[in-house]
Simulated assay, not measured.
Amino acid sequence: MCRNIKTLHNFEPPATDAEIHASALQFVRKLSGFNKPSQANEAVFERAVAEVSDAARRLLTSLHTHSPARDRAVEAEKAKERSRLRFG
């Protein structure tokens, strides 16, 4: 999995449209191998990002869990600590 794609389910506050779009963009970049598509491929690239964003949004609104929502600040702090331990 691409490390830049973050888990968006079960957070408080819920994932924003910008976060969903960013994850979709990373996913399409990974699949296509393009960081920035050529002009010939730009339209299909953007359409793919939009379709993946829509599918991700539908998925996130359809998922149910009994676990309490995670706090973004707490999770970010845990990630910083893991990074500090890993890279010093």
Rank of each mutant, 00 (worst) to 15 (best):
residue 43 A to T: 12
residue 36 K to W: 12
residue 16 T to F: 05
residue 48 A to V: 02
residue 27 F to S: 05
residue 27 F to V: 07
residue 31 L to R: 13
residue 33 G to I: 06
residue 48 A to M: 10
residue 23 S to V: 03
residue 16 T to Q: 08
residue 27 F to G: 02
residue 26 Q to E: 15
residue 48 A to H: 02
residue 18 A to Q: 12
residue 31 L to K: 12
residue 37 P to T: 04
residue 29 R to K: 14
residue 43 A to L: 10
residue 47 R to S: 12
residue 26 Q to C: 14
residue 32 S to P: 05
residue 48 A to R: 07
residue 30 K to C: 15
residue 30 K to N: 12
residue 28 V to G: 01
residue 25 L to P: 00
residue 23 S to C: 15
residue 28 V to S: 03
residue 48 A to C: 12
residue 15 A to W: 03
residue 39 Q to F: 08
residue 16 T to Y: 01
residue 51 E to H: 10
residue 25 L to C: 07
residue 30 K to M: 12
residue 18 A to H: 06
residue 36 K to S: 12
residue 52 V to G: 04
residue 48 A to N: 08
residue 41 N to M: 10
residue 22 A to M: 06
residue 19 E to N: 00
residue 24 A to D: 03
residue 29 R to S: 06
residue 20 I to G: 00
residue 34 F to C: 12
residue 50 A to N: 15
residue 29 R to F: 02
residue 40 A to R: 12
residue 50 A to E: 15
residue 34 F to Q: 10
residue 30 K to S: 13
residue 25 L to F: 09
residue 17 D to P: 00
residue 32 S to D: 05
residue 50 A to H: 11
residue 44 V to T: 12
residue 24 A to P: 07
residue 37 P to G: 07
residue 36 K to C: 10
residue 51 E to L: 15
residue 37 P to V: 08
residue 47 R to E: 14
residue 29 R to D: 01
residue 44 V to W: 15
residue 42 E to M: 11
residue 47 R to V: 06
residue 28 V to N: 03
residue 24 A to F: 02
residue 52 V to I: 15
residue 45 F to L: 08
residue 38 S to H: 03
residue 31 L to N: 08
residue 19 E to D: 05
residue 37 P to E: 09
residue 28 V to Q: 05
residue 49 V to E: 05
residue 51 E to D: 15
residue 49 V to A: 00
residue 36 K to Q: 14
residue 26 Q to D: 14
residue 52 V to N: 04
residue 48 A to P: 01
residue 37 P to S: 03
residue 15 A to C: 01
residue 40 A to Y: 08
residue 44 V to G: 04
residue 16 T to D: 00
residue 28 V to K: 06
residue 29 R to E: 09
residue 23 S to G: 14
residue 38 S to D: 10
residue 31 L to T: 11
residue 40 A to I: 09
residue 15 A to D: 04
residue 35 N to S: 14
residue 37 P to A: 06
residue 24 A to I: 04
residue 24 A to M: 03
residue 27 F to N: 02
residue 49 V to K: 03
residue 19 E to H: 04
residue 32 S to C: 02
residue 17 D to G: 11
residue 51 E to W: 09
residue 46 E to V: 08
residue 32 S to A: 04
residue 24 A to G: 05
residue 36 K to T: 14
residue 21 H to M: 10
residue 29 R to Y: 00
residue 37 P to C: 03
residue 49 V to Q: 01
residue 39 Q to C: 09
residue 39 Q to G: 06
residue 30 K to Y: 15
residue 28 V to D: 00
residue 41 N to D: 13
residue 21 H to N: 10
residue 49 V to Y: 05
residue 26 Q to N: 14
residue 25 L to R: 11
residue 37 P to H: 06
residue 48 A to Q: 05
residue 36 K to A: 12
residue 30 K to L: 13
residue 31 L to P: 02
residue 29 R to M: 09
residue 38 S to F: 00
residue 31 L to W: 12
residue 25 L to S: 07
residue 28 V to H: 03
residue 52 V to Y: 01
residue 37 P to L: 08
residue 34 F to R: 08
residue 35 N to H: 11
residue 46 E to G: 01
residue 23 S to N: 15
residue 52 V to Q: 07
residue 52 V to F: 07
residue 35 N to A: 13
residue 15 A to G: 03
residue 35 N to R: 14
residue 15 A to I: 02
residue 44 V to I: 13
residue 41 N to W: 08
residue 36 K to R: 13
residue 38 S to A: 02
residue 49 V to H: 03
residue 20 I to H: 02
residue 46 E to L: 14
residue 45 F to R: 02
residue 40 A to V: 10
residue 42 E to G: 01
residue 48 A to G: 05
residue 45 F to V: 08
